[in-house]
Structures are given as C-alpha cells and as structure tokens.
C-alpha cells in the first residue's frame, strides 16, 4: 500500500464526533489508559469508523488491545477493505507524547498515533504522531464537521 495524500500534509483529519468520542472514552476510563482505533478505507487516509477497544491490561500506565477482540476487529477491517487509520490511547498522568514504550511497540507505520492526556481534569491535551522505525514526528490535528469528511 502506498502512503496516502493526507500523510504528505502531516496531518490527521477527524470529525468533531470522532474527536469527542475519543476524549469521552479517555475520560470514562480515567485513571486507566483507554485505547482504540478509527478505521477507514485502505489508501484513503480517512478516519471514518470509530472503534473503542478494551484495554486488556486495565492499567493507568500500560495498554494492550485484548487479543481476541483485536482479531475480530482486524478481520472486520479486512472484510471491509479498511485499515486502522488512527490508533489512539490515553496517558492519564503524563503528557500526550509517545513514551519509550509507545515507540518500542508501534507496529503500524501507516497509522496516525493519537494521544490524549487526561492528566488535567478540566482540559484534555490531544495530539497526533507518526511513529516509523522508532522515529516520532508530530502532525497537525484538524477537526472538521462530519459532512466535510464525507466530501473529501
């Protein structure tokens, strides 16, 4: 698969509804880390289908997708010709920046890694990164109305 146009612009585009769903999941699971994906058509770089995943570790400092749930969700993506456009998780006591663990385990070079920090109860921090071969590069987060994403 080739790199989508969106990645050239170093930007992740999310609808307001998806952005809100990620933040709500992070708040709901606080102080444990929350995690999930936003799937989209392969090659499109469009994050259209929000899927909250269980954190099998149920931990404030670590997350791991439940392996059975991951197989189910990955198969469903395969059947729909989708990929995980966004992989998100929360940090609940530290900043929204990839940790050494995040970098060591990042295995989807085409994904946008979204991090949400819920360390501040009033205001979340929401950032996005590419993690390729251990190299982290931050990208812009652009939030748009749902209709705009469909039109892209």
């Amino acid at each position: 698969m080739t790199t989508g146009v969106g990645s050239v612009a170093a930007m992740v585009v999310l609808t307001q509804a998806t952005y809100d769903a990620i933040v709500a999941h992070a708040r709901r699971d606080h102080p444990d880390e929350a995690c999930g994906i936003v799937a989209g058509p392969a090659g499109s770089d469009r994050a259209v289908r929000f899927v909250a995943m269980a954190n099998a570790e149920r931990s404030p400092t670590f997350y791991r997708f439940d392996s059975a749930e991951q197989l189910r969700v990955w198969r469903e993506m395969d059947n729909r010709d989708e990929v995980p456009v966004v992989i998100y998780h929360s940090h609940t006591a530290t900043e929204a920046y990839p940790s050494r663990t995040d970098i060591a385990y990042a295995a989807e070079p085409e994904a946008h890694y979204v991090l949400v920090s819920t360390a501040d109860p009033e205001r979340e921090s929401f950032r996005s990164f590419r993690i390729v071969d251990g190299q982290v590069s931050e990208e812009e987060v652009r939030v748009i109305a749902s209709a705009e994403l469909t039109a892209r």
């Binding site: 880390e33 400092t61 670590f62 791991r64 392996s67 998780h89 940790s99 385990y105 295995a107």
Partner: peptide
C-alpha cells in the same frame, strides 16, 4: 493469522519496560 500486538503506555518513564522492550 499473525498480528502485531497493539500496546504501549506511559509506563515508559520507568527503565524496567525499556529493558523488556529491547
């Protein structure tokens, strides 16, 4: 079917996990 685990977390502040990862 082979799938890379999707995992991570803020625990990296600790050196223990870095050793596990390498």
């Amino acid at each position: 079917t082979i799938l890379p685990a999707v995992a991570g977390g803020s625990w990296a502040a600790s050196d223990r996990i870095a050793r596990v990862a390498h």
